[in-house]
Computed example of a mutant assay.
Amino acid sequence: MPTPYPLQFQPEFKERVWGGRALEQFGLTPPEGHIGEGWMIADHPNGTTKVLNGALAGKGLDEVREQLGTAWLGTKGVSEKGGRFPLLIKLLDCNDDLSVQVHPTDDYEALPPGELGKTEMWYVLDAKPGAHIIYGLNEGVDRAVLKEALENGTVMDTLRQVPVEAGDTFFIPAGTVHALCAGVVVAEIQQNSDTTYRIYDYNRPGLDGKPRELHVEDSLNVTAYEGAGATTMKTNDATPGEWLKLAECPYFVVEKGIVAERWELSTSAESFTILVVCEGSGTLEWDNADSDKIELKAGQCYLLPANLGSYTLDGNTTVLRSYLP
C-alpha cells in the first residue's frame, strides 16, 4: 500500500447550455465550448476523475477506492448504496440561468438503478453585481399551485429569488426547488448523484438546438412543499484559524476556514477530508511527505486520505473542508 498523501485529480469538464469560460480564472484548461461544470473529485458512471500527482497518478478515483478502500477513504468512506465514493465535488460556472430543478431523496422509487438521491450545498466563489438564485417556493405554493403554474406558464411567480454575493452559502436538501442564475460561480459539495429533475427551462433550446427534456411529474412528486430544511448564511465574519460550520447533514459536513498563519490539523480514521481552495494562496504540508509541500491556489481541490494523519495549512487562503459525519 502506498504511503498516504493528498490527491489532486484531473477535472472532468461538462459542456452545458448555461456554461461559459469562468473556470479558466482558476488556472484550469477546459475544452472549447460552454463549460458549465468541472467535476473536480468524482467517482460516477457519468464522470470519473484520475489522480494527477504522486504514486497513484493516472488511477481513477474508482480504482483508488477499490484498491485502498477504507484505509484511505475511512471506515465511513464508501457509499453503502452503489459502493461508490459518497461525494461529488464540482466547480460551476453559471454564465446563464440554470433550469429550475429539484432532486430526489435516496428512497424515491423512480431513481435509476444504483443511483443516489441528491442533497447538496453551494459556496459562492464569485458573483456579478445584481446576481441572484432561485431558492425554494414562495409561501403557500403546494403541488396543485405549482402544477397549475407550470401549465399556464407562470411558474416563475411561485419561486423565491434571493440575491447572492461571494461568501454566501446555501444548503439544498433533496426536495428543494432551486436554480443557480447568471453571473455566479460556485463550489458544490453534493451526494454522489447525477439525477436532476427539470421543472422549467425558460423554453430555450439545448446545445443541440432542441428543447431540453423536462421531468414535470417526477419534479412534482419529489418537491418538499413544506420545506426540506434548506438554510443559508453569510460567512464573511469567519474567524481566522477557526472552522465555521456551513452545512451538516447525514451525507456531509462542510466548514469554512480562513488560513492566516500555520494551522496544524489532522484527518480522522472515519473519513477522508476534502479541501477546496476558495481564494488566496498558501501551502499544504503533511507528515512523512516524500516530496515538497503543495502550493495551494484558488480552484484546487484535494482529497486527503483518512490515514494521512497530521497536516498543516499555511499562508493567506480560504478553504472549505468537507468530511463525512
Rank of each mutant, 00 (worst) to 15 (best):
D290A: 14
E63Y: 00
D208P: 00
W263A: 13
F171Q: 11
G19W: 05
G299W: 07
L88V: 06
H178S: 07
P2F: 10
K90R: 13
L207A: 12
E63W: 08
G69H: 06
G82E: 10
A247G: 11
K128Y: 03
T158G: 07
D93M: 05
V177H: 13
L23E: 12
E12I: 15
E15G: 09
L220W: 00
T283K: 08
A22Q: 14
P113F: 12
L303K: 01
P86Q: 09
A174G: 04
V277S: 08
C181R: 15
G114A: 07
P211I: 07
D43S: 09
D218A: 13
D157Q: 12
V64L: 06
K81Q: 14
K210L: 11
V164H: 06
V162T: 15
T49A: 13
L284C: 10
G309A: 03
N46L: 14
P113H: 10
D237G: 04
D218G: 02
I172K: 12
T48W: 03
G114M: 04
S281T: 11
T75Q: 13
A247T: 09
D287W: 05
D292V: 05
P205T: 10
Y225A: 02
E261W: 07
A57I: 06
L92Q: 05
G114P: 00
E109G: 09
H103T: 02
H178G: 07
Y225M: 04
V186W: 09
V222W: 08
I89P: 02
G69I: 01
H44F: 10
L246P: 00
S281V: 08
K76S: 13
K118W: 05
P325Y: 10
A57H: 07
V277Y: 04
G282A: 10
S310Y: 11
Q25R: 15
R84S: 06
K234W: 05
K293G: 08
G27Q: 06
I189T: 15
D43K: 05
R21N: 13
P6W: 08
T195I: 15
L111R: 04
I134P: 12
E15K: 11
W122S: 04
P305K: 09
G77L: 08
T158V: 11
L88P: 01
V164W: 01
L52F: 09
K81N: 12
W122E: 10
Y123E: 01
V186E: 09
R65Y: 00
D106T: 06
V124S: 08
Y323D: 11
L88F: 11
I258L: 14
G175C: 04
P45R: 06
W72I: 02
S310I: 08
A182R: 08
A71F: 03
E120G: 01
M1S: 15
E242M: 05
G47L: 07
G153Q: 05
Q8G: 15
G309F: 05
L303M: 12
G27M: 10
E217F: 00
E12C: 14
Y225V: 00
G130M: 09
A127T: 04
T283V: 03
V185Y: 02
T231D: 07
M40K: 01
W286L: 00
T267M: 02
K234V: 14
T267R: 02
A228N: 03
V124T: 10
V102C: 06
P6G: 12
M233H: 03
Q101S: 12
G140T: 08
D314P: 00
L214F: 14
P129C: 06
N221E: 15
E148I: 06
